[in-house]
């Protein structure tokens, strides 16, 4: 019973915080509302005995949101509700799509005859996940690793505007490199 109440409260929180993302008029608040939504979901996942996933969700999403907050402020500064802000277009259409998808999904959810749980819950969900990722689902981990590595490189290439020729000169022999801020190691 307590679990059910916790789940319900956290679910309401997650949705409310998610809605707040698009209604508050400050970038910082929008970002941290989204973080609140993620943390509420992490709470749900924790209540569902998926400790590792819950903690990792909170960890990853906090880092993401902290960085995202900086980007938000960088590109559209507007602290603490100082300025009413609407950055919407096509609000009505978007709302229609959102409501339609929600209605469709909900209808499905409540009409489907869900089966009973198959098998008994694993005592240690963390162990179960680890065994899967390092065993039966190894391929997922391998692909994820490659995708993340590609993301690091692609992201850096997209975001930076200085290549090695900018740093080391046309013959790549300029030492020290021309950087706006020198790093901490001799190059």
């Amino acid at each position: 019973m307590l679990t059910d109440v916790t789940l319900a409260v956290l679910g309401v929180l997650a949705v409310a915080a998610g809605g707040a993302v698009f209604t508050v008029d400050s970038m910082a608040r929008a970002t941290y509302a989204l973080l609140a939504s993620f943390l509420a979901v992490a709470g749900i996942v924790l209540t569902l005995d998926l400790t590792y996933l819950a903690v990792v969700t909170a960890l990853m999403m906090t880092m993401e949101m902290a960085i995202m907050g900086v980007f938000m402020v960088m590109f559209m500064m507007n602290p603490g509700g100082l300025m009413p802000m609407t950055m919407m277009h096509n609000t009505r259409g978007a709302a229609a799509v959102g409501v339609a998808v929600f209605a469709l999904l909900t209808t499905g959810i409540w009409t489907i005859d869900w089966p009973d749980a198959r098998g008994r819950p694993s005592r240690d969900s963390t162990h179960q996940l680890a065994e899967a990722l390092m065993g039966s689902h190894m391929l997922v981990m391998v692909v994820v690793a490659a995708a993340l590595f590609a993301t690091i490189i692609a992201g850096t290439v997209l975001a930076t505007h200085r290549g090695r020729y900018d740093r080391f000169g046309p013959n790549l022999d300029a030492r020290p490199p021309r950087d706006p801020i020198p790093g901490g190691l001799p190059r």
């Binding site: 559209m76 500064m77 507007n78 602290p79 100082l82 300025m83 802000m85 505007h161 706006p180």
Partner: peptide
């Protein structure tokens, strides 16, 4: 007062002027 610049430039908020954009070191 690092407020919204390029959207609402020229406004004041709580008596604080808003920031504007300008070219910077990193392009």
């Amino acid at each position: 007062h690092d407020q919204q610049g390029h959207e609402h430039g020229g406004h004041d908020a709580a008596g604080l002027p808003m920031a504007g954009t300008a070219p910077d070191r990193d392009g």
